[in-house]
């Protein structure tokens, strides 16, 4: 019925108009095509070399099953590198990054996941050999148009135990924020104080015998400041939290532009845990707390050494 209604509608439209519409649409498609091709000119040669040196686990069309594409990742990582440079990070302890499977466990902060980006670029460009870090993302990221594709092509994976286990068994590096959205959405008065870690990462580490590298990221908390989490608005737009910036009355939406704080990233020595992965929560919890305490220690040490937020 719908088809016949649509056909009737099409008959009413002058053929000339249809022709013009199709021409406009094909022009638009051409522009999109050109934009896609032009992207390759923006690829940073160091990023490209690092990605080329990664072990090849992709199929004939250049994708892994999660949608990571080295070719497209080169572009996204080149863009991300500019963000990385904006924060001028100092990276310490990358030599602690073990070969093979590893879980990177940093603190989460700063409203937008710049901390994840900085850790991933550090591991790709500063570690030797370069490591591709697979960050675990929240479920709602998959529902965001464009972002979901950009993330998937860059190696981001939905934070799910089965995804995680498959990647670890494939000896990849996983970046997980056990604080979750509660961590990145924390308000300014709670800065650099970890909220309770989830337990999932520890069960996975035990199950797959994966070392855990605790990481501290300093500088994220001051880049986008949130005084208040407006939960009602967050629910309305389907986001995990809605930060209210103190600069909002002054700058409007620009208040969410990250300030050029200086990032400092500390990679700790790997921690090894043993025991059954399906043990009681209380037993797992003790191991989780050990990691959480170590991350907090790294943060505290980093904060003591810091002389200025911006330099």
């Amino acid at each position: 019925m719908l088809k016949s209604a649509l056909d009737a509608l099409l008959r009413e439209v002058p053929p000339d108009l249809l022709h013009k519409c199709s021409e406009i649409s094909s022009r638009l498609t051409n522009v999109l095509q050109l934009a896609t091709e032009a992207r390759h000119h923006f690829v940073d040669p160091t990023v490209a070399a690092a990605i080329d040196s990664l072990p090849n686990r992709i199929n004939s069309q250049g994708f892994d099953p999660w949608g990571f594409s080295p070719q497209e990742a080169k572009f996204y990582y080149s863009l991300a590198r500019h963000v990385f440079d904006y924060f001028r990070p100092e990276v310490f302890g990358l030599e602690h990054l073990p070969k093979g499977r590893v879980l990177l466990v940093p603190n989460h902060s700063g409203q937008l996941p710049f901390d994840g980006l900085v850790v991933a670029i550090a591991a790709l460009l500063k570690a030797s050999p370069p490591r591709l870090v697979r960050p675990m993302a929240e479920r709602w990221v998959s529902t965001l148009p464009f972002v979901n594709e950009m993330f998937a092509r860059s190696g981001v994976v939905l934070g799910d135990p089965i995804n995680c286990r498959n990647l670890l068994e494939d000896d990849q590096a996983i970046l997980v924020f056990p604080e979750g959205a509660r961590g990145s959405g924390k308000t300014f008065q709670h800065r650099y104080r970890l909220v309770e870690f989830g337990r999932g990462f520890m069960r996975l580490a035990l199950q797959t015998k994966t070392p855990i590298v605790p990481v501290a990221v300093i500088g994220g908390e001051e880049s986008i400041i949130s005084l208040y989490n407006w939960k009602g608005f967050a629910r309305l737009i389907g986001a995990p939290y809605a930060p209210v910036s103190p600069l909002l009355p002054l700058l409007g939406p620009l208040a969410y532009f990250p300030l050029p704080t200086k990032f400092r990233v500390y990679f700790g020595e790997p921690m090894h845990f043993e025991g059954p992965f399906d043990d009681e929560d209380s037993v797992i919890e003790r191991k989780v707390v050990a990691v959480q305490d170590r991350v907090q220690e790294l943060i505290n040490e980093g904060l003591l050494k810091r002389r200025s937020v911006f330099f």
């Binding site: 999660w66 529902t143 799910d160 498959n166």
Partner: peptide, 15 residues
């Protein structure tokens, strides 16, 4: 049968 019954869902892991 068909794989459609698993459904395409944002929380689907792979595979």
């Amino acid at each position: 049968s068909t794989f459609h019954i698993y459904g395409a869902h944002p929380s689907n892991h792979i595979p």
